[in-house]
């Protein structure tokens, strides 16, 4: 077996797993927040996600990894029904949020999206002031009281670790912030609708290492309160921030389990090949 010996996983990934400063949540004892069963997504004729079944543990970080086009972002976008807006998208299977089917005809999509917030790859502040960006969600939900909006802005910006940097210029344009600040603003904005679940689609892929580190620290803090699902291309990031990791390949869920297990003793050959950098 010696010549076929498994190559050591990339040092930095192994280090990242070992050096996790924060306590890993025990995903086996956490409740299940979201449960996807045999979820398939088709874009016109092309199948993007194929019968994915996975549990998302409550108040944990679940990382979705895999090569480009593996369906991880598509899966993520099913969790707040963002795929509804894509022409020709069709969804089969079931997603339960706290036991309720989010694709049932009774579901109010607007309410669902308030409960399941989302942060995108590219930070997309609205061309408004910092304040107006944060309170956009509450505003469209009908909150008008200025004091109430101010409280929301302060608490969300604080949770997004941005308050100290912007508290004295809330009325400046959000477009003046740096990339990392804009992304934290988008996180604050997502928090302002008071969600339980936070979806993050490669939230740090456009940021420099320092800003990325801040976002990762923030993810750690946020999982105290929120269930987080993060799509990432960055294996070290998945290893650093997540409690559970799911590896997607060609639209299928190949393997999912506690992050430490997936990175140190993957069950599937393809998972191992991917996390050791043989492809992808």
């Amino acid at each position: 077996m010696s010549e076929l010996e498994k190559p050591m996983p990339e040092i930095s990934v192994a280090d990242a797993v070992r050096d996790r400063v924060h306590q890993t949540a025990n995903i086996s004892t956490s409740g299940i927040k979201v449960k996807a069963t045999k979820l398939s997504v088709y874009y016109s004729d092309k199948q993007a996600v194929n019968e994915v079944t996975i549990d998302i543990p409550e108040r944990c970080v679940t990382a979705l990894i895999g090569p480009s086009g593996c369906g991880k972002s598509t899966f993520l976008r099913c969790l707040n029904r963002m795929n509804d807006m894509i022409d020709g998208a069709r969804i089969e299977g079931e997603i339960l949020l706290d036991g309720e089917d989010i694709y049932s005809s009774k579901t109010d999509v607007v309410q669902l999206r308030k409960r399941v917030g989302m942060v995108f790859q590219k930070s997309v502040p609205f061309p408004k002031t910092i304040f107006e960006n944060v309170v956009y969600g509450p505003r469209v939900a009908g909150v008008r009281n200025r004091n109430r909006l101010m409280e929301i802005a302060e608490s969300c910006l604080t949770r997004a670790a941005l308050w100290d940097e912007v508290h004295d210029r809330l009325d400046d344009s959000a477009l003046q912030l740096s990339g990392g600040q804009q992304q934290r603003l988008c996180i604050a904005r997502a928090l302002a609708t008071n969600p339980d679940v936070l979806l993050m689609d490669e939230p740090a892929s456009a940021l420099d290492p320092a800003s990325t580190a801040r976002i990762e620290d923030l993810i750690f803090e946020l999982k105290e309160r929120y269930t987080i699902v993060i799509v990432t291309h960055n294996m070290q990031q998945a290893a650093r921030v997540s409690d559970k990791t799911a590896f997607f390949f060609q639209g299928e869920l190949i393997e999912a389990g506690p992050t430490t297990d997936v990175f140190t003793k993957p069950k599937q050959k393809r998972t191992e090949d991917y996390i050791t950098g043989r492809f992808g």
Binding site: N80, M82, R113, M118, F120, K122, F126, V140, A192
Partner: peptide, 11 residues
């Protein structure tokens, strides 16, 4: 992306 961001906030 800007529209998506707004939709994702429940607009």
């Amino acid at each position: 992306a800007l529209r998506d961001a707004a939709y994702a906030l429940g607009a």
